[in-house]
């Protein structure tokens, strides 16, 4: 959706290109403030400002915007309480921040010319790693060795415990990968598809009357995909938050399989 000049007008990958805005280099590593960093900051600023300003009146009877903030609060609180119980509520700020960050970053990506922060694997992987490390650190601090009960489900016959434990370990280790790749791939694929179909409209439209007639189909597809992408943007944030809640449940109740 990011089009800079005619040359890259049809390149569906160009929108994921990172460019340095403020070059910074520390110890040979590139810590430049990039367009990705800019849109992270914009995402956070927008989400933070919305939540802050919509609740500034502290209305007993909420207005529309305050209702949105309250709904998201109760939505995440309910989700966390359902999957991790009241013991998991100490992670509420974390889950809420993750959900808001991913949601707003995804929705930001729906604006033309905007950079989609969550379409980069490293970003989603860091978020997933944050979740998994929280699970491991909290689980070990709270339950010590008992935390490893998550790898041995109760009620399994002793004979097959090693196999089950192995599967559980692999499943546990694949969590950060599946969590991050799911979000990353959804955003990436959606944006590429959208860009490709929109590119068809532009290319066909440039070919005269027949082309314009032929462009109707990809145009309809683009409109439909845009709707779908908004759904995906919300759905992936929701899925990320739900899975975070379920993984946190392991940290709170290791034996609770």
């Amino acid at each position: 959706m990011e089009e800079q000049g005619v040359a890259v007008a049809n390149d569906p990958i160009h929108q994921f290109q990172i460019s340095r805005l403020v070059p910074i280099e520390i110890g040979g590593l590139d810590f430049s403030f990039t367009n990705s960093s800019l849109f992270m900051a914009l995402t956070v600023a927008t989400a933070g400002a919305f939540l802050f300003l919509s609740t500034s009146s502290r209305g007993l009877i909420p207005g529309r915007l305050q209702s949105i903030s309250e709904m998201s609060y109760e939505f995440i609180a309910g989700m966390l309480r359902d999957s991790a119980g009241s013991g998991g509520m100490k992670f509420f700020p974390m889950v809420f921040s993750l959900f808001m960050f991913v949601l707003v970053a995804n929705l930001f990506g729906m604006f033309p010319y905007f950079f989609t922060v969550t379409s980069h694997l490293i970003v989603t992987f860091m978020l997933a790693l944050f979740v998994i490390l929280t699970v491991i650190v909290y689980g070990l601090m709270k339950h010590g060795v008992g935390f490893f009960k998550i790898f041995v489900p109760s009620g399994v016959p002793t004979a097959i415990v090693p196999i089950v434990a192995l599967i559980e370990v692999i499943s546990f280790l694949s969590r950060p990968i599946s969590l991050s790749v799911r979000l990353f791939a959804n955003m990436l694929a959606g944006h590429i598809t959208l860009k490709v179909f929109a590119g068809f409209v532009a290319s066909l439209g440039a070919m005269g009357a027949v082309g314009i007639g032929g462009a109707i189909l990809p145009l309809a597809m683009t409109v439909a995909l845009t709707g779908l992408e908004f759904l995906v943007a919300f759905l992936q944030a929701y899925v990320f938050a739900v899975l975070t809640c379920m993984y946190l449940n392991d940290a709170v109740h290791p034996g609770g399989h």
Binding site: I18, I24, L29, F31, S32, T34, S36, A41, H120, M126
Partner: peptide, 8 residues
């Protein structure tokens, strides 16, 4: 850009 993205 991994270091930059991680840091920011």
């Amino acid at each position: 850009f991994y270091p930059s993205q991680i840091l920011w």
